[in-house]
């Protein structure tokens, strides 16, 4: 019981699932492995929310940038072993090409590294890994990130091509559903590099 309480205090929404599951089976000591399994499987209480979140994550194309692409039999396709884990930390890239004429942006073949007037951005790890992903985030921090276009709602600005100006129009319930779903996918340890942010344009 105490272990379940500690997990609740430290791991956000997933932990709420653990707590709910623990409460249903009674006040018993819950082994870590069982707690982990419960975390991976949404409890009935938020299964609908998770399903809605999956629908939104899939339908809004999160996979297009946050899952690295690899070359497959059908051309570039997402590497589902790295599902939504962002730009691979072990991928070495040369400097991006200089823009030519009206072509102002470049993208790596993985679709996870982007270069343009904003600098160089790397897509984030959206898995629930506690050290490198969203594992310690709260649902509200996720909502605030999309709503405000800033990391955890208050930090540095999100950079293109993250379409937060579009996604911020989603309502809170939908954004929280997306977060609930993201907390159920396999955690992948992948520390995405910091972006390189271009200086602001000079004064006119």
């Amino acid at each position: 019981m105490m272990r379940a309480r500690q997990i609740v205090a430290t791991s956000g929404l997933v932990a709420v699932v653990v707590w709910t599951a623990g409460a249903r089976v009674g006040a018993q000591e819950k082994p870590a492995a069982a707690a982990k399994a419960a975390a991976a499987k949404p409890a009935a209480s938020n299964a609908g929310q998770v399903a809605r979140g999956k629908y939104l994550v899939v339908g809004h194309g999160c996979n297009d940038c946050h899952t690295p692409y690899k070359m497959g039999d059908n051309g570039p396709e997402p590497d589902m072993t790295k599902f939504l884990s962002g730009h691979p930390a072990d991928m070495t890239l040369p400097p991006p090409p200089q823009p030519v004429g009206p072509w102002i942006a470049s993208v790596s073949a993985s679709f996870t590294a982007w270069s343009g007037p904003w600098g160089i951005s790397y897509t984030a790890n959206l898995t629930p890994d506690k050290d490198t992903g969203l594992g310690t985030w709260t649902s509200q921090q996720f909502v605030d990130t999309i709503r405000n276009g800033r990391v955890q709602g208050h930090g540095r600005q999100l950079l293109p091509p993250m379409p937060w100006p579009a996604f911020k129009n989603l309502n809170d319930a939908d954004l929280k559903a997306m977060f609930a779903y993201l907390q159920t996918i396999p955690a992948i340890k992948n520390k995405v590099p910091d972006p390189v942010i271009a200086p602001p344009p000079p004064a006119k």
Partner: peptide
């Protein structure tokens, strides 16, 4: 679709419809 997303992000134009 990805190009449109990039364009929206650069220009700030909102292109994605929302359910509610």
């Amino acid at each position: 679709a990805l190009c449109l997303t990039l364009a929206a992000a650069i220009t700030g134009v909102v292109t994605v419809a929302t359910s509610a």
